[in-house]
Deep mutational scan, measured.
Amino acid sequence: HNLTITQGKLFFHYNPKLCLSEIHKMEEVSGTKGRQERNDIALKTNGDQASCENELLKFSYIRTSFDKILLRWEPYWPPDFRDLLGFMLFYKEAPYQNVTEFDGQDACGSNSWTVVDIDPPLRSNDPKSQNHPGWLMRGLKPWTQYAIFVKTLVTFSDERRTYGAKSDIIYVQTDATNPSVPLDPISVSNSSSQIILKWKPPSDPNGNITHYLVFWERQAEDSELFELDYCLKGLKLPSRTWSPPFESEDSQKHNQSEYEDSAGECCSCPKTDSQILKELEESSFRKTFEDYLHNVVFVPRKTSSGTGAEDPRPSRKRRSLGDVGNVTVAVPTVAAFPNTSSTSVPTSPEEHRPFEKVVNKESLVISGLRHFTGYRIELQACNQDTPEERCSVAAYVSARTMPEAKADDIVGPVTHEIFENNVVHLMWQEPKEPNGLIVLYEVSYRRYGDEELHLCVSRKHFALERGCRLRGLSPGNYSVRIRATSLAGNGSWTEPTYFYVTDYLDVPSNIA
């Protein structure tokens, strides 16, 4: 807008934040220059609390790290170098490059900038070799853009010569660093050979998330399962459950009422301010606690030095998902009996873990797994792929695949051998790939016309006998059925096997 004052003059007093240069501009645009008398524009009460600059400061050096910015700028000295009290560095987070010096300023003089007072450097006698002032900004957020400017702080001049310097606002972004852990990993099994893994992005990506790394490792069953005799009275049979499938998407929606109208769909109840505040506090606490764990609990591995020492970490090797089922080394339970199943799973520490690289999504279907087997899954978020990966501390989750139908069934015939004193040795093959492992066998036998009897055969007993022995049988026709019990439950009964026990007292003698 054009402003013209045809008559009258300007009068400025007691404006401590208004620089004289701005008042002189007002004289020019209003056409009143030359009308004012000496005392109409006070030299001592206008701009006496402001830094009124008329020179431009330029930054000469900028260096960044993930949490620091090192700045240096060209030296500046007023005509009387004693008038320079120091520099004021202003900075704040700036997602967009549209910041002005006066953003967030209120009537009390406060604003949204963080201000650092910096002492002037030592003055050199040689004007050509003056030290460049600077400042190291610490405690910054990774991968965050900051708006920065600097200006001088000078003393009051009796001659009211307006001098000083100020830089333009520059924008500097800190470097990326390792992201925080992925949030809320959930693993479920939808079949006997697959596990579905879902997660949420890290709360602090500290860069642009480029991919996720998912490692999985087959877990050995508890050692007590191999040692305890679950045929003993009072000892509860062990059981394991597989990871249940995901709930429906509708039930997972946030901010939804727990109660549904019987007449149909209901609208979600909005969260109160107290609920939102509580969630923010919980989120802040979780982030602080995660940072504490990362800094205190997890110790970084030592990389190899120039002395030739090897990095103890196993090298990563990509495998196809079809090879995942046989990740671990199978060892027989008892070496003397080769027909026992290889369900003991000690994992070799030198073995390469299978892994998958996930790009542009937060889910993965891990296939080719062994049925009813526990897996430990390790999830890392990465925001750099080359020249070397920059990934987060791992988040861990466990899951067990679903049982395989008929995996616990005894394959092959049940054979028998009759000894003296009416002892019958029953023999059968253990299931080759049971659900988890076989903890015991149930032997059901009966003599024709009598009630059915049951015998429990422990895992250890089966390994020693290759089956079991029935003792003290009365003469007669017998039928026997056997079924295995694994961590997933009972298998199917075998087809009945028949044998006849004679009275050993009636056996004919070869003595003449």
Rank of each mutant, 00 (worst) to 15 (best):
N206Y: 03
W216S: 02
S223N: 12
S344I: 06
L453A: 11
W242F: 02
G476P: 01
V358R: 08
G306Q: 10
R316G: 02
G322S: 13
V334H: 12
H211C: 02
A309N: 14
A463T: 13
G489S: 03
A381R: 02
E260F: 12
W242Q: 06
V297P: 06
C266G: 11
S367W: 09
V397D: 01
R400Q: 10
A330M: 10
N255Y: 04
P387H: 06
Q384P: 04
F298I: 10
T386W: 10
L225T: 13
R318L: 07
P349S: 12
S341C: 08
M402G: 02
R483N: 05
S479Q: 06
H425K: 14
P403Q: 05
N422T: 06
A463W: 12
S257E: 14
D261S: 08
S492C: 15
V334P: 11
G436A: 14
F285Q: 05
P434V: 08
S284W: 12
S257Q: 15
C391L: 02
G207W: 01
T373P: 00
A394W: 14
Y396A: 06
Y448T: 14
A220Q: 12
P312S: 14
P354V: 08
E356I: 07
S479A: 14
L437I: 11
Y230R: 12
I438F: 02
V480W: 06
G489P: 03
N421C: 07
E389N: 12
P205E: 03
K236D: 04
G449W: 02
C391A: 02
S304L: 06
V480C: 15
E433L: 05
R376E: 10
L505Y: 12
V414Y: 01
E221A: 01
P245Q: 13
S341P: 06
S223E: 08
T210W: 10
H461N: 05
D506G: 14
F499M: 14
M402C: 15
V331N: 12
P332D: 07
G489I: 09
V423D: 10
C267Y: 13
Y498C: 03
Y212K: 00
R400N: 10
E389H: 14
E356A: 10
E281D: 15
G308T: 11
I482T: 01
T497A: 03
P245C: 04
I377S: 05
P205L: 07
F372C: 09
D409P: 02
R481T: 01
P244Q: 14
N295G: 06
R390V: 03
S341K: 09
T307Q: 06
F462G: 03
T272D: 04
R286A: 14
R447A: 14
S320H: 08
E417F: 11
N208H: 04
C231N: 01
L293C: 03
S398Q: 04
I366Y: 01
G306C: 07
F298T: 06
R481G: 02
Y375D: 00
Q275K: 12
A220T: 15
C456E: 01
V299S: 12
K406L: 08
S239Y: 14
R447L: 14
A463S: 13
H294T: 02
G467S: 09
E417A: 15
T347H: 04
H425S: 12
V327T: 08
C269A: 06
S444C: 03
T343E: 07
E279R: 10
L440Q: 13
V397Q: 01
V443S: 00
C231H: 01
Y445V: 11
L228N: 10
R447S: 14
I482Q: 01
S284L: 06
E362G: 03
S223F: 03
V214E: 00
D311S: 13
R400M: 06
R390F: 06
P508V: 13
A405P: 05
E310L: 09
S268K: 14
F298W: 04
A395F: 12
T303P: 13
Q252E: 09
I366P: 00
E465N: 10
V365W: 11
S341G: 08
D409Q: 12
G322N: 13
V214T: 06
I410P: 12
T340S: 11
E279A: 08
E247I: 05
R370K: 14
R240I: 10
F419Q: 14
A395V: 11
F372Q: 04
V414Q: 03
R319Q: 05
T494Y: 02
T241C: 04
T373V: 04
C468I: 11
K233E: 12
Q380R: 04
L235K: 07
E290R: 10
S367F: 05
F226G: 03
F419C: 09
Q380K: 07
Y500G: 07
S239T: 10
V423K: 05
L453V: 06
F499L: 14
N208T: 06
F215P: 01
N421Q: 15
E362S: 09
L437N: 05
R240M: 09
V423T: 14
S486Y: 00
C231L: 01
N208E: 12
D385E: 09
V424R: 01
R466W: 10
T210Q: 14
R319H: 12
I482L: 09
D291C: 05
V424N: 00
P205W: 04
A399C: 09
S274C: 15
S243E: 05
Y504C: 10
A330S: 15
K236S: 13
E388L: 12
D408L: 04
T415F: 09
A336D: 14
